[in-house]
Design a protein around this nucleic acid. Structure first.
Lengths: 206, 206, 206, 206
DNA sequence: CATGAATGAGCCTTCATTCAT
DNA sequence: TATGAATGAAGGCTCATTCAT
């Protein structure tokens, strides 16, 4: 039994390693430019072994994506209390926390953004739809936060919740794209402040 | 002469047709999944003919991208007066006009967004850089508008011009992404309003 | 009629030009590596025009070869009196004259050797056979000279006419191959002397 | 270990088989007319397999040539004692032995001559130079034998060593060319004698 | 179970040849 | 008659996938 367990664990470990290595390859070289042999040789295993763990090249991509999505979701889950804020001040802190979490996860490894945003959208319709579903999900999350704020009263009653959510998420997305090219923690912090100013103060002169 | 001219014109026309068809294929099927034969047969020409007009598969992508970029740029160029606004009211109208132009161009054909944003970023480092350069350019454009507003005085003197530009462009980008999935003119109009509210009023309750 | 004639003459002239240019291309680039378009563009004609003068790529090669063979044969024809020599002295002069003629023709333009020897032997069996037929012919020519010498009495009565002819021709061939790489008139003259020594004196010390 | 070894041996064997089959194809059909698929299918392997053993079509040619050159060189190496002859009689026997070796190797399989002389000279400048280098090498070998004979005194002191070497090698070359068309052991023996007569006696009547 | 040798579908690209102008 | 645009057969090469060891 213990031997069985150990074997089981090793199998899972290798599976995770393959996912991790595939992620690296996809991020650095691109999904289409990466061969199964590239992944296997980087990991030091025979490329036949790959097929004992994943059905085909497309399959590993699904796993990589799921892994990335899981990481992002679990990072956000810690702060995930859509109705926790009862004052604007609470809300600001909450938004800041969420933003920081995102930055911690995606900003720490720009390759995640690249794979999620670019590679995963270029392979086929199902995966593209899945990625777009994530965008929808993010929009709904943000929108639910906003809606709560409107309901409670610390946000404008006439707020177009949906489209404002799109705008806010888009801003964050743009920051991650910036980060892709010029990764810089300080820059991310300043962006966060600028976005908050935009949200709470607007850009007009007083 | 006239015969010569006609010949010349037909050549240019075919070249344009190939670019257009390649664009369609890349948008619908993806660059990597599209074969030269696909483009040629959709256009009803022999695939050898393709190579009379473009050096290789990569070459046509460059032309497609240049074409798209040209269309976007020329659409924006009409409104391109970075220092035309002297009051917040002027600026709002200007921003709205620019937004409408973008929507007219990119929103009219969501395939453009797809190719520019996804396909073009997945092929090559050079092309990816070129696309990111466009993002930089857009950011600088937006930033220069904002900077002008700050200088003139109708925008907040402490505005973080760069990061606010990133945020605004990101919001627009997100709208285009939304549009990719749920193309809807009315929706675009509402988003435009929501973004303007965000920019000039913020989200806080009064 | 005169107009007709002139046209006829122009046609022949262009045909000759094409043969000449094809020869250049084949010699410099090789038959297989040369495209019809290469020949045409070097000559400044449309490559469609080519097919008005020659049936196909293979056809032009035949003409090029025939042209080269003709040049060699006509160069030799001047000296071509297989029974003119009645003394060893006569024979030596005759052989020297023939050798000089060969050198004048083939040595003057090493590209001829290249095309005749290498390109023409690599295309197909018929042409290869034709080239080998030339070798046979050369051997028979040389042999007939030798046989005449034996009959007349100034050459060894036990001379193996055929094989000696092979050997002598081979020596000349080797010289042409040398010349291919290190073209040098002086070198050719010295080789000619060395061969004559070999033929009439042998290599042994007295 | 044994399994590993067997695997290794099979790989090497297949590699040799591919070289051998490629040689056959090149000799029979010509390098340019031979496709990778031809080699593979004649050998009964998939054409993808070919690329597991050789980088590209050009690569296999190099291996074929190297193999042929190796066979010739090793055949000559056995008799390769450039200073072993101290009398004309020794020298004659030595030359005869070397000639026999050459005939054994090249005469046994006329395809070798064809590939070395014709195919290999038509592909590339580098390969052509390599082949010509072999001719130079052969000339130097022959010349060194002759020079030794001159030094020792059994060959004419005024012998033009270099050009005589060229002539002798050319004679041998011509014999191989003859053999290409009319392979015949008896004929080769007679040629050998005729060449020796030419070398030691000359052609003149006494 | 791990391996990597074998496979062939598939794709890009070239170029000889045709034919409408 | 000269032209060059169009064509598609042909061939080199890659790589995801299979399977015997």
């Amino acid at each position: 039994m213990t031997a069985q367990d150990r074997r089981e664990r090793q199998k899972e470990e290798l599976q995770r390693d393959i996912v991790a290595t595939a992620f690296e390859c996809f991020a650095e070289t691109g999904y289409h430019q990466t061969g199964i042999a590239d992944i296997a040789s980087r990991l030091g295993i025979g490329h036949g072994t790959f097929y004992r763990y994943f059905a085909n090249k497309r399959d590993i991509l699904d796993h990589v994506i799921s892994d990335l999505v899981g990481r992002v979701v679990s990072a956000l889950a810690d702060e995930n209390r859509p109705d926790a804020a009862w004052t604007l001040e609470d809300y600001r802190r909450q938004v800041a926390r969420i933003g920081d979490s995102l930055i911690d996860v995606l900003g720490a490894d720009t390759r995640m953004t690249r794979v999620l945003l670019f590679e995963a959208t270029t392979v086929d319709a199902p995966l593209r739809d899945r990625m777009f579903g994530l965008l929808d999900f993010a929009r709904e999350m943000t929108a639910s936060y906003l809606r709560h704020g409107v309901d409670v009263g610390y946000l404008r009653p006439d707020l177009d919740v949906r489209n404002t959510a799109v705008a806010i998420n888009g801003a964050i997305l743009a920051m991650l794209l910036e980060d892709l090219r010029h990764p810089d923690g300080e820059s991310r912090r300043r962006f966060s402040e600028a976005l908050q100013h935009l949200m709470y103060v607007g850009i007009s002169a007083p």
